[in-house]
Design a protein around this nucleic acid. Sequence first.
DNA 1: GTATATTGTTAGTGCGACTAACGCAAGGGC
DNA 2: GCCCTTGCGTTAGTCGCACTAACAATATAC
Lengths: 165, 165
Amino acid sequence: MNPRSTDMPHTGDGPLTPDRLRRLPSRVLGIAAAHADQLVSAGLAAADARKWHYAVLVALHDLGPASQATLSRRTGIYRSDLVAVINELTSRGLVERAPDPTDRRRNVITMSPAGRGALDRLDALVAALQDDLLAPLAEPEREQLVELLARLVDHHGGRVAPPAG
Amino acid sequence: MNPRSTDMPHTGDGPLTPDRLRRLPSRVLGIAAAHADQLVSAGLAAADARKWHYAVLVALHDLGPASQATLSRRTGIYRSDLVAVINELTSRGLVERAPDPTDRRRNVITMSPAGRGALDRLDALVAALQDDLLAPLAEPEREQLVELLARLVDHHGGRVAPPAG
DNA sequence: GTATATTGTTAGTGCGACTAACGCAAGGGC
DNA sequence: GCCCTTGCGTTAGTCGCACTAACAATATAC
């Protein structure tokens, strides 16, 4: 217990943070996730995209044309927030929104050819970003990391914030 | 590529989410962190505390009386946000804020006896919460997980969002 | 045919990270 | 002594994201 405030010149809290916090699982997890999020968000922003754009395009690719409610469930994006995301995607010409003739409550969202192109590009980008993120880990370690994390989220299954990037 | 919108009755996106997203490192990381954050935030809230309260108390324990700026650097909490945190801690009687006679720009934050008691209780609580969080992992796996995460954050060193819980 | 549930949408809440700007005080050069 | 720079605490405000509430239109169940 240092009795005096330690004011050394300093940036970056690496060695300053005590182990009690530094190795606290929930904290490391949070910090790592923040780094990851920042990294991919910045990368996607440079391509005029956001993580949900990617998530929705992936969902559309797997599902084919789908209603917003379906996309919401699939991606975890709240249907209220999805409205804006679809707006952004349509304004970029990556997706089309049309009323569903068979159920007039619904909109059918369809990926355009441009959307498919964008998805391919984003796929590559995202892969590259994952690589940046995992740079300090060797291949088997990377696999182990995502496997451990996957077990964590499987265990605490219920509905939570699903960052899409 | 299912051409039709799949509307099965469903809650929880486990099996619905395609592997492309499910095993995307940045995404699993984000989701796991969200779960962790929710878990410890809820746990701490039940004890009338927030994660930063804990972070600040730990810092004060390690450092002894310290200025807000020092605490900010140590915990990663922005000094603008720290104001409110210290307010909350003082209103709970866990901490005292007094002007520093040796440097009249500063406040000296001192942990009260009640604060020490609270820290002890929170230490136990947080440990229990970590245990809940890591429930599905065996001991060596837990260590491996935090080690891998620690290497990630060490590598991407720069200043980022440091969730304290 | 009336109740109930679902869909898309708008608006709004709450919170966490982060910036801008302020008044004040300290320290260094000269 | 006086500038200039730097650090401090504080206030206010921005931005993005998770999440709720309510609504009108429509579909489904009874």
